[in-house]
């Protein structure tokens, strides 16, 4: 947890230092905790219990309906030594996150920049680009199964126009994962509107000042837009890591992890153990391994953030 402190220092550095004596600090402490109450109550009453329960379960052999025995670290040993699918699914998830996460962050930013213009009908465009992010469930899965079909699908039809012969996306192990990444880009509208909100908050006078200095569009982007967006990029990166490692729904509906385990995501393995085989103890152990992995990666990102994240509140 020492690392946690350090890492967080880097993103909280900007908060102004308290001037004045102990009294003011104490008052601010009290105020802060009053503001925090909604989170503290929810955390203590609704959140922490179930989370600790799952941590406890990870040391048991509990199968829902059968007895529960404390088995120490046995679940973790099984994972590493016997469960081939644990390694397989972890690999799939890492590969996928390397494809989907950077692409998502960049594409969503590009979309947001495009939609942050004063063009006629921009409200309609914003709605169109965001819509895919809100369609969910089986209908979307079926849509994409159709789009990815090798002979009759829309994607290969489009590729054919530029004389590229597309593969059988969801049926060839090496293309299935990239296909999922493409699909996730279609839903990048969620990240996009987070960027959009931040873009809207950049004061116009910064651009005006840059223009007076003779900065062209590219320089304005590099010296005004991008620095002002870094807190949002950090947010999207951290939230993206957490989310991408929990990828589940489309694989569950569309491929059930196939072909040949090419889309067998970690959380699919976890879900199958929890609800397919009622093996709740083992599923909890899987969850806590994932927790540690994601936590370490998040801390690593937070740690680097001091070098590239800029908060406008800092320049007083």
């Amino acid at each position: 947890m020492v690392h946690g402190h350090d890492a967080l220092d880097y993103i909280t550095l900007n908060t102004r230092t308290v001037k004045g004596g102990l009294g003011i600090a104490r008052r601010e402490n009290l105020e802060a905790y009053l503001f925090l109450l909604p989170w503290i109550i929810g955390f203590l009453v609704l959140t922490i219990g179930p989370i600790l329960a799952s941590l406890g379960l990870s040391f048991t052999d509990w199968q829902v309906g059968l007895g529960m025995n404390f088995i120490g670290l046995e679940n973790f040993r099984l994972m590493v030594v016997e469960d081939d699918l644990f390694k397989k699914s972890l690999g799939v998830t890492f590969n996928y996150s390397l494809m989907a996460l950077p692409a998502g962050i960049v594409v969503a930013l590009a979309m947001a920049l495009l939609l942050n213009q004063k063009v006629f009908g921009i409200g309609v465009f914003r709605t169109i680009y965001y819509l895919p992010a809100v369609t969910s469930g089986v209908a979307v899965a079926m849509l994409w199964a159709w789009i990815f079909n090798s002979e009759f699908g829309l994607l290969n039809w489009a590729l054919d126009l530029i004389n590229v012969k597309g593969p059988a996306w969801l049926l060839e192990p090496r293309w299935a994962l990239p296909a999922f990444a493409v699909m996730s880009l279609w839903g990048a509208g969620g990240l996009m509107i987070i960027y959009l909100a931040s873009l809207q908050a950049i004061p116009q006078n910064l651009y005006e000042a840059a223009q007076i200095d003779g900065a062209n569009v590219a320089r304005q982007f590099l010296h005004v837009t991008l620095p002002m967006l870094t807190p949002t990029i950090l947010f999207n990166l951290v939230v993206g890591i957490i989310a991408v490692f929990q990828t589940f729904t489309n694989a569950y509906i569309m491929t059930a992890g196939g072909p040949n385990f090419a889309t067998y995501f970690y959380v699919l393995h976890l879900y199958n153990n929890a609800f397919g085989y009622a093996r709740m103890g083992y599923a909890s152990a899987l969850a806590w391994v994932l927790f540690v992995i994601v936590l370490v990666m998040t801390l690593a990102v937070l740690r680097t953030s001091q070098y590239w994240v800029f908060y406008s509140g800092e320049k007083e």
Partner: peptide, 26 residues
């Protein structure tokens, strides 16, 4: 600015990292 801000923030972040599938039953 308050005591425990960094720790509490990190705790809050980490509650997002436990997949819901194992907290559904509890």
């Amino acid at each position: 600015r308050f005591t425990g801000r960094r720790v509490l923030f990190l705790i809050m972040l980490s509650t997002m990292m436990v997949p819901i599938w194992v907290t559904i039953v509890p």
